[in-house]
C-alpha cells in the first residue's frame, strides 16, 4: 500500500515538474517572439548607473 502511495507521489511530482518545465519553455519562446531579448540586451550592454548606486 505504501509502495503504491509512493509511486503515485513520484508520478504526480514528475507530471508537475514536466508541466512547469514545458510552461517555462513556452513562456521563454513567447518572450523571445515578442522581442523581449532586445530590451534585455539594451539594458545589459549599457552601464546601468542606478544599478551600481550612481546617478
Amino acid at each position: 500500500m505504501n509502495n503504491l502511495r509512493n509511486g503515485l507521489k513520484v508520478q504526480q511530482r514528475l507530471t508537475a515538474s514536466v508541466s512547469v518545465l514545458l510552461f517555462g519553455i513556452c513562456l521563454m519562446l513567447y518572450g523571445i517572439h515578442r522581442d523581449e531579448m532586445a530590451v534585455v540586451l539594451n539594458k545589459a550592454v549599457h552601464i546601468c548607473l542606478e544599478c551600481i548606486g550612481l546617478g
Binding site: 519553455i25 513567447y30 523581449e36
Partner: peptide
C-alpha cells in the same frame, strides 16, 4: 512596451525546475 517579462520568467521557471 511590457509589464511582464515572459522571456525571463520562463527562463527562471525552466532553470528552476531543472
Amino acid at each position: 512596451n511590457f509589464d511582464l517579462s515572459f522571456y525571463v520568467t520562463g527562463f527562471l521557471l525552466a532553470i528552476g525546475v531543472l
